[in-house]
Design a binder for these strands. Structure first.
Lengths: 144, 144
DNA sequence: GTACGTGCAAAGGTTTTGCATGGCG
DNA sequence: CGCCATGCAAAACCTTTGCACGTAC
């Protein structure tokens, strides 16, 4: 339990309430790709009164702080990923599976170069690679 | 006019119809981050009868071929980006501006390593860096 | 000529909003 | 104690789906 999201939230001047705390606990507990509905369902384990509207508001707030990122998954709508310290996925174009990997091939000097070139202040990043996962590669040749 | 999207579509065995052609022309004409509504509006310049449903169907089709990628933009919902040959953005967390840059710091051996490790076949990729654009950095200190 | 693709319009689900209440700081 | 945040429920929105017709190949 690092409390990274909570820390950043407070540092930005927002209150750490029961609803937000529950939402954050869900986001930091394992599964890195959750839909708003899943966050609501799991969040109610920590704070039964949690409302759908508050989940949406909290997700938007964390996104605006650069801590979360909304992704379009394979088929089931939006999912949010924590990108506080960079996030890297392999995404299967067929089944929508998102595989997380740690290694980031990013050139370390790159962020600095971009800040120089565009005056852009980089806070986090995400790298996605698209293709076919092992299971779908196996399945494809068979189906006709 | 490269016709890259059209070529790939046909190569995959799909028909190149007037509706699809119009949609593709919009996607290949400049602006790399379009919402479905914008695609519809601009597409009707080429094919007035173009329907909203067909735009959605075509966007989904191109996405499943790994040519497009749905992104959640700053505030206005989904936008689609062409990732046929890799795409790299700086995204402003405040105003939602998406700045394209060419340089990709990706380690060239990385794709191959991931194929070895996960059995994943990489077809395209996208790199997003989140932060504040030059304009918003200037504006922030002023507004209280 | 045939199977695929389209347009229309209605259905479905998710996301957003307003307002009175509650609780953090 | 004041203001921020919440919960509820309704409203708004975007997206998807069914079906009969048109058309690419």
């Amino acid at each position: 339990m690092t409390g990274l999201l909570a820390d950043r939230l407070c540092a930005a001047g927002y209150r750490l309430t029961a609803a937000r705390s529950a939402t954050i606990r869900v986001l930091e507990s394992g599964d890195p790709h959750l839909s708003p509905a899943e966050v609501l369902e799991r969040g109610r384990a920590f704070h039964p009164a949690l409302s759908r509207a508050t989940v949406y508001r909290t997700l938007e707030l964390l996104t605006s702080l650069g801590l979360l990122r909304p992704l379009y998954g394979g088929e089931d709508g939006v999912r949010f990923a924590c990108v506080a310290d960079g996030h890297h996925h392999l995404i299967c174009l067929k089944c929508g599976a998102a595989i997380h990997f740690d290694r980031c091939g990013l050139d370390d000097g790159m962020e600095h170069d971009l800040e120089q070139q565009f005056g852009f202040e980089v806070k986090s990043h995400m790298l996605e690679l698209y293709g076919l996962c092992a299971d779908c590669r196996r399945a494809l040749p068979e189906e006709k």
